[in-house]
Amino acid sequence: MLLDLNLPRKNGDEVLAEFHEDSNRRRIPVIILTSSESETDVVKSYELCASGFLTKPVDPAEFIDMLQELEQFWLSIMRLPTDTDLD
């Protein structure tokens, strides 16, 4: 799941904390994808069990490249649990 820290009603930290309190969703990787470059945001996100933290590039071409690399890493390289692993 990709999660931005800057959301209209709840901030991303609140969503991340609620998400990981639910044992059914706890194993789903959550990547923070935000415009923030704050070290405080990075540390807090990892403390709340984020699987990764990425700062969005301003340049649209760089952003697309980042998303393609993210897709390659999480969908091709990383090994994630299958449904049968969750039983």
Rank of each mutant, 00 (worst) to 15 (best):
E39C: 06
Q72T: 10
G52M: 02
M66N: 12
S23Q: 12
F73W: 07
T84P: 07
S45R: 03
P57G: 06
P29Q: 01
Q72G: 12
P8K: 09
T34M: 03
S76K: 15
L7V: 09
D87F: 05
L33P: 02
L75S: 08
A50T: 00
L48D: 01
R9N: 15
K44E: 02
P8H: 10
P29G: 06
E14K: 09
S76M: 11
L67T: 06
L5M: 06
S76P: 05
F53S: 01
T55V: 10
R26H: 09
L5S: 06
E47A: 09
L75F: 13
S36F: 05
V43E: 05
K56L: 00
I64D: 05
Q68W: 14
C49E: 07
D22N: 12
S35P: 05
D83V: 14
D85T: 10
S51R: 03
R79D: 08
T40S: 13
M78G: 02
D13P: 00
L16I: 05
A50M: 01
D87T: 10
G12Y: 03
I32H: 01
E69L: 12
V43P: 03
L33N: 13
D65V: 13
Q68K: 15
F73Y: 15
L2M: 12
N11M: 04
D85M: 10
I32F: 04
F63L: 13
E37D: 14
N24F: 11
V43R: 08
E47C: 07
R27S: 15
P60F: 00
S36E: 01
L48I: 00
L86V: 06
E14H: 01
S45P: 02
P60I: 02
L16M: 11
I32N: 02
D87Q: 04
M66Y: 07
E47I: 08
P57T: 07
S23D: 13
D65Y: 14
V58E: 12
E62T: 08
T40L: 06
S38C: 00
E62Y: 08
A61W: 12
T40Q: 10
P57M: 07
T84Q: 14
C49L: 10
S38A: 08
M78L: 08
T82Q: 10
V30H: 01
I77M: 04
L7M: 07
R27T: 14
H20Y: 05
E18N: 10
E18A: 14
I28R: 02
R25Y: 14
V43A: 03
E21C: 12
V15R: 11
I31T: 03
I31K: 00
S23T: 12
D41V: 00
E21F: 07
G12R: 00
D4V: 06
L16G: 09
F63P: 01
D22P: 06
N6I: 13
R26I: 13
L33D: 05
S35R: 15
V58N: 13
Y46H: 03
V42G: 07
G12E: 01
L54V: 12
Q68P: 03
E71Q: 13
P57S: 03
V58Y: 12
A50P: 03
N24Y: 15
M78R: 09
L5K: 11
P60L: 02
F63A: 03
D22T: 11
A50I: 00
E71I: 15
V43D: 05
S45W: 01
L33F: 09
